[in-house]
Design a protein around this nucleic acid. Structure first.
Length: 576
DNA sequence: GCCGTTTTCGGCCCGACTGTTTTCAGTCG
């Protein structure tokens, strides 16, 4: 299920981590990290490459290529196994807690025998961390905060991982003879930002072949439940996948039921009861014993029988969609097909993996009408940006613009919003960009007032068009900054600055509820990929999911607009 | 370990922040 490149990426990353933990050469560790990233972002499948071809991937040399080759041949990497034998795997998990890196993880293991996150939490609560040199009260506190953040994520998996797995299961089962329909449901269909497990629904006259095919999938590690209507498995990565097979005539009711949400379903059932009906996963029935089945075959029929239009899954949270449906005022939700361009992307001039030409070719293949290159600005020092490099890139962009018949290439940048709300360059230099995204990359700990002021000031900058990943949260890893979002939204609406819905699966920032709120205050949005490789240009599908959950229409999203209209927005004259 | 209009060795994204130190190591972006 995971692309082989992702598997290899994970192994190389693990190898790099183990080198760091065991105190190996930091540059060697970095080399493997770099290779891991490069393999993950490489457009070509590594399975089709020999050692020579693997070395064609930038950052992959002889040694790494041989290790990958070994893995493709034998399914294991000896050197990695040797490293694994040295240290419990839990130490690497401990390293995953914010503020804990390889050195601290090792110190905790050596000093206290901490070999798992649970043991770390226990030691921190018991006040034992102080026994290890370099740890004090504050660090124990921050470690516990980090663990809590992870606990809140609750072992849920990212939407990208879940989607890939779900699509693979659906494709495999759809190919089984006798399978009439198959789709995934649950929170994933509602486009929630993470998934706890994966629900797959299928119809067939005979469920046995489907169940057999399901449990035989190569990545199934354990069969949790095996029955005629429901089978649950766990993958090697620990993800639970449930398959339910229903008769073809019950597809619609089952799909409604298993898509949820629970709150939405409860509302539907209550409406059914009020109408003298009964709704279950088996259909909509007349109430009472032996009540006749009215409809069940399609979602549309079920909703219609309750007096509702079909409701898009991302809206099914009982947050007003039922009422809107009854009034026939459901929004025409924005879709991925509505997107005419991407306004936040990177190249290898900063921390992207692919050169400009490769990103442009991939963008053009997506059918975009416009595409902005927005590499990092100099205040993010590690990216080593200079005026000269940026201007040289601009010259190249101007040259390449026009190479693609239907796609306009825009030159932009991702600015850094400083603690006081200032950005990297003075107005004169900024004026040379077609589009400027401005984002917070530092000073995450400012207090609410300061954080709000800095973002408002960034909005007020006439050269800032989009606020990138506005809350800077990383799902399950970093809490959002403390900021008065309403104040910032008002500033956006007032100044004609768009809020980004960053489609990177670990960000999804703004999130659904903020989107809803911002829209009500008159804010416009940009759904961007923040791509650091050609593959990540597909990220907007997740951002679109968030936008749909927030009830956005194409009108709300500036990168669904024609270039003519977007161009006017980018001149940022306050509307009068 | 990778890489070279610095080319087969000697570099490797650099600076800020944090908490612990009493001069700095570790982590992060």
């Amino acid at each position: 299920m995971p692309r082989l490149n992702d598997e290899v990426k994970a192994l190389l990353q693990e190898y790099a981590d183990l080198i760091s933990i065991t105190g190996g050469d930091a540059f060697r560790a970095r080399a493997y990290e770099k290779a891991a990233r490069a393999v993950g972002g490489h457009p070509e499948d590594v399975a089709g490459l020999d050692v020579k071809g693997l070395q064609g991937i930038p950052g992959v040399g002889k040694s790494t290529a041989e290790k990958i080759g070994e893995y493709l041949r034998t399914g294991r990497i000896e050197a990695l196994e040797e490293q694994r034998a040295k240290i419990p795997s839990g130490v690497r998990e401990v390293m995953g807690i914010p503020t804990v890196g390889p050195k601290k993880a090792m110190a905790l293991y050596r000093g206290l025998g901490v070999g798992s996150v649970d043991e770390l939490a226990e030691a921190a609560r018991a006040g034992r961390l102080g026994e290890v040199a370099g740890f004090g009260e504050r660090s124990a506190e921050r470690i516990l905060q980090g663990i809590e953040l992870r606990r809140q994520a609750g072992g849920r998996i990212g939407i990208d991982v879940a989607t890939a797995l779900a699509e693979d299961v659906v494709a495999a089962l759809s190919a089984v003879p006798g399978c009439i329909r198959c789709a995934y449901a649950g929170s994933l269909r509602r486009m929630r930002e993470t998934a706890g497990d994966i629900d797959v629904l299928a119809t067939a006259e005979d469920s046995a072949p489907l169940m057999a095919a399901f449990t035989a999938l190569p990545y199934v590690a354990e069969v949790v439940v095996a029955g005629a209507t429901k089978t649950s498995v766990r993958t090697a990565e620990g993800v639970q996948v449930d398959l339910r097979v229903v008769p073809p005539e019950d597809w619609g009711a089952a799909l409604v039921y298993f898509t949820g949400s629970k709150a939405h379903n409860i509302r539907l059932r209550r409406m059914a009861v009020e109408a003298g009906l009964k709704l279950s996963e088996y259909g909509l029935f007349r109430a009472g014993p032996g009540g006749e089945k009215l409809v069940s075959a399609s979602e549309e029929e079920v909703y219609a029988a309750l007096g509702l239009p079909w409701i898009a899954p991302p809206l099914r949270e009982d947050t007003g969609e039922i009422e809107a449906g009854l009034r026939d005022e459901l929004p025409r939700l924005v879709t991925e097909r509505d997107l005419r361009g991407d306004l936040h992307t990177h190249t290898d001039l900063t921390d992207g993996l692919a050169p400009l030409e490769e990103m442009l070719a991939a963008a053009a293949a997506r059918g975009y009408a416009y595409y902005a290159v927005t590499d990092h600005a100099p205040d993010l020092v590690m990216q080593r940006m200079t005026d000269e490099k940026m201007l040289a890139q601009r010259a190249l962009v101007r040259e390449l613009d026009g190479r693609y018949r239907r796609m306009r290439v825009l030159h932009g940048t991702e600015l850094n919003i400083g603690p006081d709300g200032g950005v990297d360059w003075p107005a004169g230099f900024l004026a040379g960009f077609d589009v400027c995204v401005a984002s917070v990359h530092s000073h995450f700990g400012l207090d609410r007032d300061a954080q709000t002021r800095r973002l408002v000031r960034a909005c007020e900058n006439p050269h800032v068009h989009v606020i990138g990943h506005p809350t800077t949260r990383l799902i399950g890893r970093r809490a959002p900054i403390d900021v008065d979002l309403d104040e910032v939204f008002r500033a956006c609406a007032r100044t004609g600055t768009a809020m980004e819905i960053n489609g990177a699966p670990r960000r999804l920032d703004l999130r659904d509820e903020h989107v809803r709120r911002a829209r009500s205050l008159g804010v416009r949005f940009a759904i961007d990929s923040d791509a650091h490789s050609a593959r990540e240009l597909a990220n907007p599908r997740y951002g679109v999911g968030t936008a749909q959950r927030g009830g956005l229409t194409p009108e709300d999203v500036i990168n669904t607009w024609t270039w003519q209209r977007l161009k006017r927005f980018l001149t940022k004259n306050p509307p009068h």
